[in-house]
Design a protein around this nucleic acid. Sequence first.
RNA 1: GGGCACUUAGCUCAGUUGGUUAGAGCACUUCGUUUACACCGAAGGGGUCGGGGGUUCGAGUCCCUCAGUGCCCACCA
Length: 892
Amino acid sequence: MSEMPKAYDFKSTETRLYEWWEENGWFKPECRPDDAEPYTIAIPPPNVTGQLHMGHAMFVSLEDLMIRRARMQGKAALWVPGTDHAGIATQLQVEKMLRANGTSREEVGREEFLSATWEWKEKYGGRIVNQLRGLGASCDWDRERFTMDDGLSKAVLEAFVRLYRMGLIYRGERLVNWSPGLQTAVSDLEVEYSVEPGFLYHFKYPVKGGGHLPVATTRPETILGDTAVAVHPDDERYQQYIGKTALVPMLGREIPIIADEYVDMEFGTGALKITPAHDPNDFEIGQKHRLEFITVMTKAATMNDKAGEYADMDRFDCRAKLWADMEAAGLTIKKEDYTLNVPRSQRGGEIIEPLVSKQWFVEIEPAAKMGLEAVRSGRVKIVPERFNKVWENWLTNIRPWCISRQLWWGHRIPVWYVNGNEDDFVCARSEEEAYEIARKRYGADVQLERDPDVLDTWFSSGLWPFSTLGWPDQTADLERFYPTDVLETGYDILFFWVARMVMSGLLFTNDIPFHTIYLHGLVRDEHGRKMSKTLGNVTDPLDVVAEYGTDALRFTLLTSGTPGNDLNLSLSKVASNRNFANKIWNMARFIIGNVEKVSAVDKPEKIDYTIADEWILTRLADTTASANRLFDAYQYGEAGRQINDFLWGDFADWYLETAKVQMRQGGAVAWTTLSVLRKVLDDALRLLHPYIPFVSEETWQHLKGAFQAADLGIGPAEGWADGLMIADWPEAGERYGGAADYELLRELITSIRAARADANVPPGKRIAAIIAGEKATMIASLQDALCFLARLDGEQLTIDVTAEAPDNCVTLSLGAVTAYLPMAGMVDLEKEKARLTDELADLDKQIKKSNGLLNGPFAKKAPEAVVNKEREKLGRLEASRAEVAERLAAMG
RNA sequence: GGGCACUUAGCUCAGUUGGUUAGAGCACUUCGUUUACACCGAAGGGGUCGGGGGUUCGAGUCCCUCAGUGCCCACCA
């Protein structure tokens, strides 16, 4: 191994390691034995034309973490990558390109448009995938899929045909959410309601034969499509009008005045205009009362010829003009300010228009029931659990899913119409099959024409976990890796995607598609604002990676938050984590630098650990156990923070410093110290590898190289693996009794340092000390370390259990051990007296509290371990108090 | 109209089954080039854990309630 530079350089590392891992075939499950337990994740397929954003970085970090840990646990880890054709999004991009070239989708025609889109896909589709690689994603790229590749297209056909034959797909004329700009229907989920200021228009509905009914509406242009006016049957104000005829303003069309309990007498005027073709509620009332359905708008949301003189006007121009005309005709009452809930397209933001049109629907209630049961029974677990409620609520109130889109880019609906008749159609997996069926049903001489529409993009992604593994064919992959294990994604697509996968999995594979749903939150800017282009607060993951490295970004995303909650990304945290990577690198440099100071003959027959060794090994065992417990509970953030704290706060700040002294002793002590250094860093690197794959692997390779070359008999019990990536996952080791003694030593050192700082002792100055108390001899075992870390003068150090305090000294009492620092000339007697007096008061307070606790109900009711802990604490406090009191008395 | 989350140090956040004196990073103060690291180290200042009530020997943690913020679902013209 080459020399390690002073600072870790991620730039020269990341690409090199990624390629090396991939060349070794370690991203493939086949790097484990055939009988290894499988562990599978299907990637949330990014839009094929998408640009990498923090959401991608988030899911890559989390899923790669899960996959890498499983792989190290010896499982056949498979992360299936791929992309989504993203119907509308992609089509819009290509249309934009066409427009830039002075043409349009309509002009070039369907076929040419599709080939242009495929070209676009080939050109830009690889970009996002390469960006995922850059984040370290250990996907099996040989198994990469695309929602419109042949296999997945076959799966889509199969799913559609099966649903149709189960009677769960039907075509119907319904009121759908229509996007006038995109010229397609969209599903309920694709509509977002935004609260906006608007008006409630009150006007007079003329009644034939005289009089009028006051009516209120937020959308006057729909008046032109009214086919009834409704009042509540019990409303005394309007009893006289029920059954009479009203006249549509400006059109004079005659419509009935009906009674329906749906009308809220309290709201508005208590009289309701009914426009069955333009409002979901009115649609139902229209059906109930068998009203006429009059559509007054075109698909472009301009008024049609049913709107009389308003024909060809834009819907909002019409609103204004009609109201002005009504005002002139004396039909208006008032226009009051009113807060509207405006339906807007999730894509593009234009106002969605409810329009009657013929569309394909999936009746998903039966599947929804299965999805509900899967979560209720615990077959599918959601992390965090609180999303169970959201799941429950949505699936319980589910409505038919409109799956047809009037787009060109997507999976064509596998339905053929017979002889130009819309009501005669066949549903089949292919044109050949369609003809076969049609001939049987309609005679030999049939002409078929395929439905022009395509399917909602989520229809194909709903099949993702099994279609990517080969379904509907019974492939070996499907057999081995399905059901998958965890589905990890953002909570914002729980309904769009996750619920649909669960439902289609249960429906088509008769199994759950995954046993756990892990939901992460949105990545926001550091002040909690949503990242948006208009706000200009978008942080590009590629920029962050270029400046701080992939590991720094990954560790930040993984440890800054908690499952299911949004996370505020701050660059200062990324910078800290870049520093963490460097810190790890330098720990390794230190250890490797010590390798040559030890020789193989120093290996002792029987290992004899110092209390420092015992302490760090115990801390390692605790950290490993805790991390594993947290990993199993999907608490990755907390696990990462704990490993970080351990490695930096315990290993680097304390053990490494102590080890410097132990190494100087040479011989068996040095050998043992080096073996502990290696063991702790090695295990920590393993624990960290799923978080920060690059720096951990690079560091580990250096460690491995140095120890293998030195041949000291120090290394992993199982031998050095080729790569950390495929090394064994650590399990918690032994705990040792000496750990507590070292803790006491740490306390003592910290106290001495603080006392020195308090007395303004120059940092370089070695001072004298007397260590007394029952644990003084324990301290003696690490006397040199004590001197080094607390800057004590070894020549002037007295260690004696029964030593008495000299005059003119600072007293540091820790119960089992006491330090006297005779800092002649440097210590202010009066100040020391005051300090000790304060300390005495504080000790008295604590002792009183502790006594109160131990003599109260606490002693009887609290668990024994807790009570014992309190007793020990009291013992320490009392010992300290005695010492402090004695010193004060001696000082007069 | 339902439902959920959040409210802890100046800022951004941890705190898993209730258990010593509530933690981290950044920022701040004072010191420091001891052969891993200045992308560093040592010491330190800073919090009545949103308000109120309750359960408990013990509450940041559990329950109730109020307030603020954010989000999701829902057809009120």
